[in-house]
Amino acid sequence: MSTDVNRLAVITWLAESASGLGRTALMKYCYFLQVVCGVPLGYRFSLYSYGPFDSDVLSDLDSAGSLGGVKSSVVYFSGGYGYRIEPGDRPDRVKRMGGTFIDAHQKELQWVVDEFKGWDASGLELASTLVYSDREAVRRGEQLGIGELSSRVRDLKPRFGIPQIQAYAEKLLSRDVLRSIR
């Protein structure tokens, strides 16, 4: 079974299991699943000002919608808009297309939803940027203090103050998500 079908199944599972799922949350959940939990989704994330991103996630969301796994609608709020992703007409069939993939990674999927439910888009962008910067440091063999990691993220996201970034880093550290912190 191809990776693509597994990805459609995962997106459909997330639409069912994570209430109030939007595009940012979907993107960051997929990032955490692949990078933190090691689920082999095969995405190629790279960094933008809004955190790690791979347009393939949105293409897969669209494909999952075409197959009836999910449905997506635009919601407006003061000063902007977002997307609401919900189960479609045939979520079970799309999940079954992924064979045993969902069962094999049930624990990781549930972990992501449990740990990050209730985080808003801004918080998820910040948290995923922290993880991205953390993994870069690990690849370079660096060990950082939490202040140093926060400072690097502050350079990327000047809207946030260091104390706010550190608070998020502490939350991630308590969930055993960061690897570069000594």
Binding site: S46, L47, Y48, S49, S133, L156, P158
Partner: peptide
């Protein structure tokens, strides 16, 4: 170019190098 943390504030401009 690659989209890494070293881009610092400049990361904002990545959308015109590689974006929709």
């Amino acid at each position: 170019i690659e989209g890494t943390a070293g881009a610092k504030q400049g990361i904002f401009w990545r959308d015109i190098i590689s974006g929709q």
